[in-house]
Amino acid sequence: MAVKDAIIGWKQLPHGCFVLEPGNSEKFKTGDWKSQRPVLDKEKCIKCAMCWIFCPEMAYTKNAEGFYIVNLDYCKGCGICSNECPKDAISMVPEEA
């Protein structure tokens, strides 16, 4: 669910603008406004997991081959993974490209 799907009228808003469902931010695809995205070069990657450790959104998960893959629905394009990668295997690419 993206922000545009969450649009409701004032009569539908919960009391005091409270969030009544614990952990419901999981339902929101919070990465829809990034201006750049990380692109992994698997030739350079040594599977060290530094991107996984440093990602502030916990958007990285390990796949079956042992690579750490970013979930672009939650990645906000901050570039920390790219900055921390010891092998320069992650490059930040503009979203429109």
């Binding site: 545009k4 969450a6 409701i8 004032w10 808003l13 009391h15 005091g16 603008c17 409270f18 009544l20």
Partner: peptide
Amino acid sequence: PIYKLDPKKPVSMGTVGIPEVYTEAKVA
């Protein structure tokens, strides 16, 4: 109270109101 801070029934109070919500919150 209608809602209260209760670990058995958690709610979040005082969250951000993005531009898509702020107007509706003020009207409510």
